[in-house]
Nucleic acid binder design. Structure first.
Lengths: 152, 152
DNA sequence: ATTTATATTTAGAATCATTCTAACTATTGA
DNA sequence: TCAATAGTTAGAATGATTCTAAATATAAAT
């Protein structure tokens, strides 16, 4: 399995993006961010906590929540809410949306087409959207064999 | 203000839809359903509880939750999750999506265009969606004057 | 009508994810 | 090196929702 070491690129990107939101770079933030980059499987805060804690045992849950918030605010990760259970976090920052398999609980990224025109909505002039969210639910081809079964 | 009495139509629709999901018609369910029809403003479970309770004081919160679930399962109402706070409920069953104003907290229904083609997604063959959800966030023209300010 | 089986309601306890608190520690800039 | 500020921590608190177990209502079958 390929586990990238913290790359200079992502470190600098992190420090820079944090700074430009008036936030400091810390060991915890760096570590949580890299934990997210290593396994791009839409973990919950709790899962991030468990993964990150193994290499940084003093890490607290509160810091994980704080850091995830910070990273979302910096535009380095996305918060994914396809279910009403715990939020999940996504380090894929390409524009995409999410498919939730109701059978196996996995979440799959779905890209937009190159030329995505306008959405077919009768949007009144008085409503000005800054964000559009599309989410799909259904089943993957074979949920029982899904490699992401209950984990993606 | 126009408050429709329980119409024969909606009562029968309710009884029938409940029955076809193997559920019984009860006074509580009827009352909660009509409470939802009377004010189509995306109330939370708690708000439904307060409104419904005034005319049926013995009503419990648990029953409101049970009933809302039942109505969602019967296809008589929709659960709306534009925020991670309490779910809201919508009795508009025309196909539509929701706009959430981050300024005033109001939720507005947005209809689809007649001919909504396909969504511009690169959907892999192995993912079969049964449901597509679009949600918008932004601001309404004048959130301060929004008639639905913090309540819609 | 009575009985029986099953569904529903209820209050309150329990749960889960998340946020808050207040003391402590680290980082930055003067 | 010090002061100011930001970040971390454990644990308590919160809020929405679900669970529990006893009481009640409904429907179906005598």
């Amino acid at each position: 399995m390929k586990k990238d070491l913290p790359s200079a690129t992502s470190e600098q990107g992190l420090a820079h993006k944090l700074a430009s939101s008036g936030m400091r770079m810390t060991a915890q933030r760096e570590h949580v961010y890299h934990t997210l980059l290593q396994q791009t499987d839409h973990p919950t805060a709790d899962e991030v906590y468990l993964r990150a804690k193994s290499a940084m045992p003093e890490l607290s849950m509160a810091t994980v929540y704080n850091t995830l918030d910070a990273l979302v605010k910096c535009g380095l990760i996305k918060q994914v809410n396809v279910e009403r259970t715990a939020s999940r976090y996504c380090s894929n920052m390409n524009e995409h949306c999410h498919f939730f398999c109701e059978e196996c609980g996995s979440i799959h990224d779905v890209d937009f087409k190159k030329d995505k025109g306008e959405l077919p909505l009768k949007l009144p002039r008085n409503l000005v959207p800054t964000q559009v969210d599309i989410s799909l639910r259904g089943r993957c081809a074979d949920p029982l064999k899904c490699p992401n079964r209950n984990r993606n």
